[in-house]
Design a protein around this nucleic acid. Structure first.
Lengths: 242, 242
DNA sequence: GCACTATATTTGTCTAGTCAAAATAAGTCT
DNA sequence: AGACTTATTTTGACTAGACAAATATAGTGC
């Protein structure tokens, strides 16, 4: 059994969770297989049962394990990719999916908020917002047009920052804002002339449109992103829970 | 303070959670406001602090509350609708969204699994699957074409069941299968002639295409749904977590 | 063989504490 | 006034137990 350390600052339940995840990934616990009971694990790891439970709970939430009262804890059969519904940056996604990502800045300006933007960002109309338009490339193919809006009062430094590797909300994180979640709405649309030109498509080609609001820890909206993805070859993945 | 009952079979932490949710909804705790400390709540509710914490943790996972160590627990500012990423049936959705839903059965037959279907359902090619095609209406407008596949060996009774109110996976639940999650892929496409006719659209109108695999508790796929939504007026909502 | 019963196993819930870490507020010294 | 220290509050992590509920298993009686 692997030994846990009590002094390196990593919580014991996190060490338990990651140890189990590693053992599952390595095949020590195969899909469908029953794990040792919580009592057994707690004595093997040398921690209390509640600590083991916290680690296991994280993995059941992720869908790696499932529990059945009176029977035991099991590894789920088919490990579909599980990290959907995660808010990740473009460069991280590029790295994970294995393509070369490039961001081309189209424009950056301070403009008064349109009604739609003001509504999404809980501002008054005509309040100044920073608007950033970018074109994103994957392996030298233009895939997405980004139209981002951030309240000017939130972070005027955004006008100087380098935008080629990070989205605006990732920069906001470095200024002390804690980004916790985002809500987005997905629709199917058709490319207008401008979009078609930028994305190198024919007019009326299918476009996956995303309306995304980035929320800080306290639930306050910090950014609005309107996102136009070319329809061919692009898809959004998500998991639904009963 | 509301009294919790120890005998009605509802876990105390669930009662704490729902009491807090009700108090927040009623405005007793306003957005941005600080909740009483966990110690205080535990003495007010008459339960241990760990029990209070479990209730609060559920609400932070939902995004209703957020905690800051050393400071306190707070109500999030803007209550965006939170029940995204939930797997719900068509009639439940209709009820929640407030439209009249109707399901029209187009065809139901047993066919050998195509490669794509076999792959999604972890079957061998040509294994028999039940294919169900339906057209779904909202307020007498055709909005979605459903193309569902269920392994024949899983539940042949599906050939007799009434499909007008429930999706196949909802019927599987009544046969003892525990549905826990689904993974789906969303794309933007164009309507072909058949789809355009069914959905009363012009050809090449935008279509939101969903490829959804329903998974049982143990992670085994029990159903594949190919879903074609008309693009105008239809959108998928989801939340992303950092 | 079949229905029922007792027993052991395992997860779910809960308690009553402890200590640590982070943030705030008050007080103290220079 | 400003920097530093100290005490207080609050959440985070953890322990070592307890009992309940669900399931499986073995045994018993007919």
């Amino acid at each position: 059994m692997p030994t846990l350390t009590k002094t390196d600052g990593v919580a014991l339940y996190v060490q338990v969770r990651e140890t189990l995840r590693e053992q599952i990934k390595s095949g020590l616990f195969a899909p469908g297989q029953k794990l040792p009971s919580e009592d057994e694990l707690s004595s093997q790891f040398g921690v209390s049962r509640m600590t083991v439970r916290q680690g296991i709970s994280d993995l059941t939430d992720e869908g790696v394990l499932y529990r059945r009262r009176g029977i035991g804890t099991f590894v789920t059969q088919f490990h579909v990719e599980r990290d959907h519904n995660k808010l990740t940056g473009f460069s991280d996604t590029a790295k994970a999916e294995g393509f070369e990502g490039k961001v081309q800045l189209l424009s950056r300006e301070v403009v008064p908020a349109k009604l739609m933007v003001a509504k999404a960002l809980a501002l008054h109309e005509t309040e100044p917002v920073i608007r950033i338009q970018t074109l994103r490339w994957a392996n030298d193919v233009p895939v997405t047009v980004y139209d981002e809006y951030v309240p000017y009062k939130l972070c005027h430094e955004l006008l100087q920052e380098d935008l080629r590797s990070r989205a605006a909300w990732e920069i906001l994180e470095t200024y002390g804002y804690t980004i916790k979640r985002a809500v987005q709405k997905i629709e199917a649309r058709l490319a207008d002339t401008d979009l078609a030109t930028l994305l190198n498509l024919e007019e009326n080609a299918p476009i996956l449109y995303k309306h995304r609001i980035i929320l800080a820890e306290d639930g306050a909206p910090v950014e609005l992103i309107l996102c136009y993805n070319r329809g061919d070859g692009y898809s959004v993945k998500m998991t639904l829970v009963r």
